[in-house]
């Protein structure tokens, strides 16, 4: 009984959007997205548009569903057997949950960087060109070029150019994470999804990654999940605050941090809870 009451209350909760968003051209739209882990609902009617060529940060306390939301975008949640998804997500206006969607084609457009650096146990070079190789690219010149370009974009080229054949697991944590970013941008995706990319890194490495994110802005659309609010403030153009599976407030980063419209948001960013 109590549950039903809570649900009816919850569905009525409305997200507060920043009018500045209306000026942006959107690349990804989440429409009434609901996600269930078995019987437990993890996302409640999320409506959110991600602007093209900008960095959008997702913040919120642990367990609020921000990583889940991110994984919905490249359909990695499909791998989990007890997940049920309702609602829709579109990429460039096309539904990604349509039955005709080829998952590997979709994921090529959506680069992903995980929380923990996850290079493959192969050489640095092989790691970077892996997405191209599985796509059927065989010409060495193309692969070499893509490798160099991606590593340069990821700011790793100078550090590893002499040891491209070395095992990627021999790199430091920060380098590994930048390698993963290089791998994510190698197939030239439209969007890069980052799931707390700095949570396992030290401050110096974090700084480098943040610089990298800033340099990617413009060329790529970046969606980054973080629970480090300073980081969100530093790197992002827009920030979405999520709480208990709801998108609470979404808007320009400066507005969210300087003058949040809702008390919940304010409490969170001022550190009253979280």
């Amino acid at each position: 009984m109590e549950e039903t009451l809570k649900n009816s209350f919850d569905t009525e909760r409305k997200t507060v959007y920043d009018p500045l968003l209306n000026n942006e051209s959107m690349i990804i739209s989440l429409k009434e997205l609901r996600l269930f882990y078995g019987n437990k609902q993890a996302l409640f009617n999320v409506n959110m548009d991600i602007p093209k060529g900008k960095v959008t940060a997702l913040i919120g306390p642990s367990g609020c569903g921000k990583s889940t939301l991110l994984r919905c975008i490249n359909r990695l949640n499909d791998l989990l057997d007890f997940v049920r998804i309702e609602g829709d997500i579109t990429l460039n206006g096309e539904s990604i949950y349509d039955k005709s969607v080829d998952l590997s084609e979709l994921r090529k457009k959506l680069g992903m960087v995980a929380q923990k650096p996850n290079p493959f146990p192969m050489s640095i070079y092989e790691n970077v060109v892996y997405p191209l190789k599985i796509d059927g690219v065989k010409k060495k010149s193309i692969l070499d070029e893509a490798c160099e370009k991606s590593l340069k974009s990821a700011g790793l080229w100078e550090e590893v150019k002499d040891r491209l054949k070395d095992n990627a697991l021999g790199l430091s944590g920060g380098q590994q994470q930048r390698l993963c970013i290089a791998r994510a941008i190698a197939p030239e995706p439209e969007v890069i999804l980052m799931d707390e990319p700095c949570s396992a890194l030290d401050p110096l490495a974090t700084m480098k990654i943040e610089e990298l994110i800033l340099s990617l802005r413009g060329d790529y659309t970046v969606a980054i999940v973080t629970h480090n609010m300073q980081q969100a403030a530093r790197v992002s153009d827009y920030t979405a605050f999520m709480y208990m599976g709801y998108l609470v407030e979404y808007g320009n980063t400066i507005n969210i941090f300087k003058k949040p419209r809702l008390k919940d948001t304010e409490d969170y960013i001022t550190g009253r809870f979280g």
Binding site: L106, K108, N118
Partner: peptide, 18 residues
Amino acid sequence: VPEHLRSASLATGATQWQ
């Protein structure tokens, strides 16, 4: 084999067989 490798590979657009 760690799950993160599997999802990393799938996330780059590899099919399950790849």
